[in-house]
């Protein structure tokens, strides 16, 4: 048993009467030969590591080795805890937690790639926001990771998940799409709604280029993770409201692949274009090179 497309995934879920997360778990059992509890334990270990990254990031105001990021999760956390946030508690908390994770990543701290390190903030951000705001159980959060991985599994095999191969749409785009689907499933959506949320989120980020200043996973990556969480919640809301993506998810993924193939090398994680080549981007790079030599 396996699935190669979102279409196959939803058909399989319907046939087996399983959620997307449960389906991933079944496929993993069959392919790896590991038993169910062991696989759940492995995923739970990842969830715990994510939690540590969030916690250390929210409290650690220190800068990254580059000196160009760090300290913003502390600011965001204070702002939100003072009740000033406009986007509502779900999105506001997700923003704080994703910022914390991505800052931990920039400090070369331990994180979990979801699906990549550059996009590691989004999924923990939305999951721990659900935990904080409606008490989602750890067991359910682990299942949410299986949901997200099923969606990422299809995306990665049909398109790409690295910025060097397909631009930021492949990283933050994929992670946001996976997060949207995971939220939809944890909030009771059907497999069709899960896949639909994935399509809606990914469509919003098609064409996004990978243009890291000085080649660091910091500017603009960290804040793109943060804003990705709000797109994930919006896409999940749309889908749970019964609003459908006119373009089916598999076709959106195919479009992402084609756009990535047409993207010039300067905009695929080479730091030779986009924000990396702005006046300020270049100045930051020069400052870092001076420091390193």
């Amino acid at each position: 048993m396996d699935f190669r497309s979102m279409n196959e995934l939803t058909e399989l879920c319907t046939r087996e009467r399983k959620t997307v997360g449960e389906m991933m778990l079944m496929v993993e059992m069959e392919k790896s030969g590991r038993d169910k509890e062991m696989i759940i334990d492995m995923m739970a270990e990842r969830l715990i590591k994510m939690k540590h990254a969030v916690e250390s990031g929210v409290e650690d105001g220190s800068p990254a080795p580059s000196g160009i990021s760090g300290g913003d999760a502390v600011k965001m956390s204070e702002y939100v805890n003072n009740g000033k946030g406009l986007s509502g508690p779900y999105i506001n908390d997700a923003m704080t937690f994703s910022m914390a994770t991505s800052e931990t990543n920039a400090r070369m701290g331990v994180i979990v790639a979801t699906p990549t390190a550059g996009a590691a903030g989004i999924i923990p951000g939305v999951l721990f926001s659900l935990r904080k705001n409606d008490g989602t159980s750890y067991r359910d959060l682990v299942m949410g990771l299986f949901t997200a991985s099923a969606l990422g599994y299809v995306i990665a095999n049909r398109s790409f998940i690295s910025g060097a191969a397909g631009g930021c749409q492949a990283e933050v785009g994929s992670a946001t799409a996976m997060a949207a689907g995971a939220i939809a499933e944890l909030k009771g959506g059907t497999p069709e709604q899960v896949v639909n949320a994935t399509a809606l989120a990914m469509k919003s980020l098609l064409g996004l280029v990978c243009d890291p200043v000085a080649g660091l996973v910091e500017v603009p990556c960290i804040k793109r993770n943060v804003i990705g969480t709000s797109i994930a919640f919006s896409a999940a809301d749309l889908s749970l409201a019964g609003i459908e993506s006119r373009i089916p998810c598999d076709e959106v993924i195919e479009a992402m692949y084609k756009i990535g193939k047409e993207m010039p090398r300067t905009l695929r994680e080479t730091a030779l274009g986009g924000l990396a080549m702005t006046a300020t981007g270049m100045k930051l790079k020069d400052r870092l090179l001076c420091r390193n030599t």
């Binding site: 991933m24 496929v27 993993e28 931990t104 070369m108 790639a113 990549t116 095999n157 660091l216």
Partner: peptide, 24 residues
């Protein structure tokens, strides 16, 4: 199909900052 497992997608547990340019 290069990606064979849910842990290829959720994972690895790694030090940052990049899964392709650091962990891999």
């Amino acid at each position: 199909m290069e990606y064979q497992s849910c842990f290829d997608i959720i994972g690895p547990i790694m030090v940052g900052p990049s899964s392709s340019h650091t962990a891999g």
